[in-house]
Amino acid sequence: MKYSEDVAKLVVARLSAIPPNLSFSIGSHGDFTARELIQEVKKKTEVGQATVEMQLTYIRKMPQLSALLTSD
């Protein structure tokens, strides 16, 4: 999937908030710290694209999740 610079910036901003002692496992792609994922996103690699897709899924689901929280 192609993504714009604005989307990349958004994803990078979100990843920058992740504590440095955490790492993400992405199947057979391996393990990445948030800092490493940021580089992958900037380089638009396969891992970068998967990262963007994961973050965009989260953002798109937020309205549904907000509705769940306010219905409690």
Partner: peptide
């Protein structure tokens, strides 16, 4: 789990949010 992560003040627990949502979807 998503609700707990949203409400949690712990950034480690919060980090599970995006993967939880992605996997569930």
């Amino acid at each position: 789990k998503i609700k707990l992560a949203i409400y949690s003040p712990d950034p480690i627990v919060k980090a599970s949010l995006a993967p939880l949502i992605s996997n569930d979807s």
